[in-house]
């Protein structure tokens, strides 16, 4: 049978669709209708393709309709972790969420991350989140003389913390945690993931310093295994599993 390239349908143009975005906005200076710092919903209707991402839709709004819309984004390809936001009541990266996966027939609801103070529109103050991360000392703490060459590690040892090295600090997990929403003292899933990455690293010697921090009142024992963090992680890290491994390390001393 001969190839029938000419008879196959040409690559079809993706039809444009009309999408409505309902965005929770907060302008610190206030607008004519809304007071300073007041949160309100605003709807935008745009023409987009089903294969566009929510970030493309936000760009379209900002560039063509309302330049005052504020949101963070840097790489726009799911690596930098700047554009985590609450889309249809789930924390996701706007740059990794396709419109066709969100039922564009209904308005798409876009909110800032919950549990962190809103600065403007979709931008939240990430400082409490980073403060928790700094608490667990996210750097290698070796003992002994500095080796002349790299510190070697077997693939099996590396595998133990491979999952938690994927974290991009987007805060999707921490701000999806119901305990974090009600108790800002809780370190949050991300800080525990960050600690897990070093606790289970055979080259690191600071395990007990970190475990002591996480054994605190605001540490791992606040985790109620709601699994929201695992569901929210845009990198597919098994966050709840990592937290449980830290709990196990604390109870059995094995890591």
């Amino acid at each position: 049978m001969t190839a029938t390239a000419e008879s196959s349908a040409p690559a079809g143009e993706i039809p444009a669709i009309t999408v409505t975005l309902r965005i929770l906005r907060t302008i610190p200076e206030g607008t004519e209708e809304h007071g300073p710092g007041e949160s309100y919903w605003q709807e935008f209707t745009i023409e987009a393709h089903a294969t566009d991402r929510v970030l493309d839709a936000l760009h379209k709004i900002k560039w063509e309709q309302d330049g005052s819309l504020a949101f963070r984004r840097s790489c726009a390809h799911g690596v930098c972790g700047s554009d985590a936001m609450r889309i249809n009541a789930r924390n996701r990266l706007a740059c990794k969420t396709l419109l066709k996966d969100l039922n564009p027939a209904k308005p798409i609801i876009v909110e800032p991350l919950k549990g962190l103070p809103v600065e403007k529109d979709l931008i939240v103050d990430m400082e409490p989140f980073f403060a928790s991360y700094r608490e667990i000392m996210p750097f290698l703490m070796p003992t002994g003389a500095v080796p002349e060459r790299e510190r070697l590690q077997s693939p099996a040892d590396r595998q133990k913390f491979d999952d938690t090295t994927k974290c991009i600090l987007c805060a999707a997990c921490t701000t999806s945690c119901p305990v974090f929403w009600t108790d800002g003292q809780y370190f949050g899933p991300q800080a525990i993931v960050g600690a897990h990455r070093f606790i289970f690293d055979s080259r690191d010697e600071g395990q007990w310093e970190r475990l002591e921090v996480l054994n605190d009142k605001a540490g791992v024992w606040k985790c109620r295994t709601a699994f929201n963090c695992t569901e929210a992680c845009p990198r597919g890290i098994e966050v709840t599993k990592a937290i449980s491994e830290v709990k196990k390390a604390l109870t059995t001393g094995e890591f």
Binding site: L211, E212, N215, D216, G219, W221, L250
Partner: peptide, 14 residues
Amino acid sequence: PRTPSGRSRNNAEK
């Protein structure tokens, strides 16, 4: 980095 103080002191939550 703190000097290792051995094990945690307050284990109530644990």
